[in-house]
Protein backbone atom coordinates (compact mmCIF):
# COMPACT_ATOMS: atom_id res chain seq x y z
CA UNK A 1 0.00 0.00 0.00
CA UNK A 2 2.66 2.50 1.04
CA UNK A 3 4.96 2.20 -1.99
CA UNK A 4 1.93 2.56 -4.24
CA UNK A 5 0.87 5.82 -2.60
CA UNK A 6 4.42 7.04 -2.71
CA UNK A 7 4.77 6.37 -6.43
CA UNK A 8 1.41 8.03 -7.13
CA UNK A 9 2.44 11.09 -5.16
CA UNK A 10 5.79 11.24 -6.94
CA UNK A 11 4.07 11.06 -10.33
CA UNK A 12 1.58 13.74 -9.32
CA UNK A 13 4.30 15.97 -7.98
CA UNK A 14 6.46 15.68 -11.08
CA UNK A 15 3.40 16.25 -13.26
CA UNK A 16 2.52 19.42 -11.40
CA UNK A 17 6.13 20.60 -11.67
CA UNK A 18 6.15 19.93 -15.39
CA UNK A 19 2.94 21.89 -15.84
CA UNK A 20 4.11 24.79 -13.74
CA UNK A 21 7.57 25.22 -15.26
CA UNK A 22 8.18 27.50 -18.23
CA UNK A 23 9.00 26.16 -21.67
CA UNK A 24 11.50 23.42 -21.00
CA UNK A 25 12.09 22.58 -24.61
CA UNK A 26 12.94 25.94 -26.13
CA UNK A 27 14.48 25.70 -29.59
CA UNK A 28 18.12 26.74 -29.48
CA UNK A 29 20.80 27.63 -31.99
CA UNK A 30 22.27 24.59 -33.71
CA UNK A 31 19.08 22.54 -33.35
CA UNK A 32 16.67 21.52 -36.08
CA UNK A 33 13.58 23.63 -36.61
CA UNK A 34 10.35 21.92 -35.43
CA UNK A 35 7.83 21.02 -38.09
CA UNK A 36 4.74 23.21 -38.22
CA UNK A 37 1.67 23.59 -40.42
CA UNK A 38 -0.53 26.62 -39.82
CA UNK A 39 -3.43 28.29 -41.64
CA UNK A 40 -2.89 31.75 -43.06
CA UNK A 41 -4.42 34.62 -41.10
CA UNK A 42 -6.10 35.72 -44.35
CA UNK A 43 -9.20 33.73 -45.23
CA UNK A 44 -8.99 31.64 -48.39
CA UNK A 45 -5.20 31.38 -48.52
CA UNK A 46 -3.09 28.21 -48.44
CA UNK A 47 -1.65 26.75 -45.26
CA UNK A 48 1.90 27.72 -44.41
CA UNK A 49 4.06 24.78 -43.42
CA UNK A 50 7.74 24.08 -42.99
CA UNK A 51 7.55 21.62 -45.89
CA UNK A 52 6.34 24.35 -48.26
CA UNK A 53 9.34 26.51 -47.32
CA UNK A 54 12.05 23.89 -47.42
CA UNK A 55 15.30 24.74 -49.17
CA UNK A 56 15.02 28.44 -48.36
CA UNK A 57 16.66 30.63 -45.79
CA UNK A 58 13.79 31.19 -43.42
CA UNK A 59 13.16 33.84 -40.80
CA UNK A 60 10.34 32.93 -38.41
CA UNK A 61 8.95 35.63 -36.13
CA UNK A 62 6.29 35.33 -33.41
CA UNK A 63 4.20 38.47 -32.90
CA UNK A 64 0.95 39.77 -31.45
CA UNK A 65 -0.93 43.05 -31.72
CA UNK A 66 -0.60 43.68 -27.94
CA UNK A 67 3.20 43.41 -28.13
CA UNK A 68 4.61 46.88 -28.83
CA UNK A 69 8.15 45.89 -29.93
CA UNK A 70 6.62 43.33 -32.34
CA UNK A 71 4.74 46.10 -34.11
CA UNK A 72 7.94 48.13 -34.40
CA UNK A 73 9.84 45.17 -35.85
CA UNK A 74 7.37 44.04 -38.53
CA UNK A 75 7.73 46.94 -41.02
CA UNK A 76 11.52 46.59 -40.65
CA UNK A 77 11.29 42.87 -41.42
CA UNK A 78 9.24 43.79 -44.47
CA UNK A 79 12.09 46.00 -45.70
CA UNK A 80 14.52 43.11 -45.16
CA UNK A 81 12.19 40.77 -47.05
CA UNK A 82 11.96 43.10 -50.05
CA UNK A 83 15.74 43.51 -50.02
CA UNK A 84 16.71 39.83 -49.80
CA UNK A 85 13.84 37.77 -51.20
CA UNK A 86 15.53 37.53 -54.60
CA UNK A 87 18.49 35.89 -52.85
CA UNK A 88 16.23 33.22 -51.34
CA UNK A 89 15.07 34.74 -48.05
CA UNK A 90 11.61 33.85 -46.81
CA UNK A 91 10.05 35.54 -43.80
CA UNK A 92 6.96 34.35 -41.99
CA UNK A 93 5.50 36.20 -39.02
CA UNK A 94 3.33 33.89 -36.93
CA UNK A 95 0.52 35.81 -35.25
CA UNK A 96 -0.54 34.55 -31.81
CA UNK A 97 -3.46 36.94 -31.29
CA UNK A 98 -6.65 35.41 -29.97
CA UNK A 99 -8.99 36.45 -31.54
CA UNK A 100 -7.08 36.78 -34.82
CA UNK A 101 -9.12 39.90 -35.70
CA UNK A 102 -6.79 41.89 -33.40
CA UNK A 103 -3.89 40.90 -35.63
CA UNK A 104 -5.88 41.58 -38.80
CA UNK A 105 -6.66 45.12 -37.59
CA UNK A 106 -2.94 45.84 -37.41
CA UNK A 107 -2.28 44.26 -40.81
CA UNK A 108 -4.96 46.43 -42.39
CA UNK A 109 -3.07 49.54 -41.31
CA UNK A 110 0.37 48.06 -41.97
CA UNK A 111 0.30 45.72 -44.97
CA UNK A 112 3.13 43.20 -45.02
CA UNK A 113 4.39 41.35 -48.11
CA UNK A 114 5.37 38.06 -46.47
CA UNK A 115 3.00 35.27 -45.34
CA UNK A 116 1.32 35.61 -41.93
CA UNK A 117 0.24 32.30 -40.38
CA UNK A 118 -2.33 32.42 -37.57
CA UNK A 119 -1.66 30.51 -34.35
CA UNK A 120 -4.39 31.67 -31.93
CA UNK A 121 -4.00 28.62 -29.68
CA UNK A 122 -0.21 29.01 -29.50
CA UNK A 123 0.51 25.51 -30.83
CA UNK A 124 3.53 26.58 -32.88
CA UNK A 125 4.69 28.93 -30.11
CA UNK A 126 4.68 25.95 -27.75
CA UNK A 127 6.50 23.82 -30.31
CA UNK A 128 9.26 26.43 -30.58
CA UNK A 129 9.23 26.98 -26.81
CA UNK A 130 8.88 30.74 -27.17
CA UNK A 131 10.11 32.31 -23.91
CA UNK A 132 9.37 35.96 -24.68
CA UNK A 133 7.66 38.19 -27.19
CA UNK A 134 8.75 38.88 -29.83
CA UNK A 135 10.91 35.84 -30.57
CA UNK A 136 12.42 35.11 -33.92
CA UNK A 137 14.45 32.32 -35.47
CA UNK A 138 16.80 32.37 -38.45
CA UNK A 139 16.82 28.98 -40.13
CA UNK A 140 19.29 27.78 -42.76
CA UNK A 141 17.99 25.86 -45.83
CA UNK A 142 19.03 22.56 -44.18
CA UNK A 143 16.68 23.28 -41.26
CA UNK A 144 19.34 24.25 -38.71
CA UNK A 145 18.48 27.13 -36.42
CA UNK A 146 21.24 29.72 -36.88
CA UNK A 147 19.97 32.52 -34.66
CA UNK A 148 17.42 32.83 -31.86
CA UNK A 149 16.53 36.43 -31.20
CA UNK A 150 14.30 37.65 -28.38
CA UNK A 151 12.92 41.16 -27.95
CA UNK A 152 13.39 44.02 -30.36
CA UNK A 153 15.50 47.05 -29.47
CA UNK A 154 16.98 49.74 -31.68
CA UNK A 155 20.04 48.37 -33.47
CA UNK A 156 18.71 44.80 -33.45
CA UNK A 157 17.71 44.95 -37.11
CA UNK A 158 21.35 45.53 -38.16
CA UNK A 159 22.43 42.51 -36.14
CA UNK A 160 19.70 40.36 -37.69
CA UNK A 161 20.54 41.61 -41.19
CA UNK A 162 24.20 40.67 -40.72
CA UNK A 163 23.21 37.14 -39.66
CA UNK A 164 20.84 36.81 -42.62
CA UNK A 165 23.60 37.94 -45.00
CA UNK A 166 25.93 35.32 -43.48
CA UNK A 167 23.43 32.47 -43.97
CA UNK A 168 22.55 33.63 -47.49
CA UNK A 169 26.25 33.75 -48.42
CA UNK A 170 26.86 30.23 -47.09
CA UNK A 171 24.08 28.72 -49.18
Amino acid sequence: MFPKIRSTLTTLFSLSLAVASPALFAVEEGEQVPDFDLPSIYAGQDNISLASLQGKTLYVDFWASWCAPCLVSLPQYNDLYLKYRDQGLEIIAINVDNPIEDGLDFLEETPLDFPIPADPEGDAAELFGVIGMPSSYLIAPDGEVKLVHMGFRSGDIELIETEIQKVLAEN
Partner: peptide, 26 residues
Protein backbone atom coordinates in the same frame (compact mmCIF):
# COMPACT_ATOMS: atom_id res chain seq x y z
CA UNK B 1 -3.14 11.79 3.36
CA UNK B 2 -6.28 12.89 1.55
CA UNK B 3 -5.44 16.51 2.26
CA UNK B 4 -1.96 16.03 0.87
CA UNK B 5 -3.31 14.30 -2.21
CA UNK B 6 -5.89 17.04 -2.75
CA UNK B 7 -3.33 19.80 -2.39
CA UNK B 8 -1.02 18.04 -4.83
CA UNK B 9 -3.88 17.60 -7.28
CA UNK B 10 -4.71 21.28 -7.04
CA UNK B 11 -1.03 22.06 -7.72
CA UNK B 12 -1.44 20.34 -11.05
CA UNK B 13 -4.23 22.77 -11.85
CA UNK B 14 -1.81 25.71 -11.67
CA UNK B 15 -0.50 26.83 -14.98
CA UNK B 16 1.82 29.61 -15.94
CA UNK B 17 0.63 32.26 -18.39
CA UNK B 18 2.81 31.61 -21.43
CA UNK B 19 4.54 34.52 -23.18
CA UNK B 20 2.21 34.26 -26.18
CA UNK B 21 -0.85 34.40 -23.86
CA UNK B 22 0.10 37.67 -22.17
CA UNK B 23 -2.43 39.50 -24.34
CA UNK B 24 -5.19 38.10 -22.14
CA UNK B 25 -3.75 39.99 -19.17
CA UNK B 26 -3.76 43.24 -21.14
Amino acid sequence: RYCLLLSLLSLAACSQVQPWEMGYLA
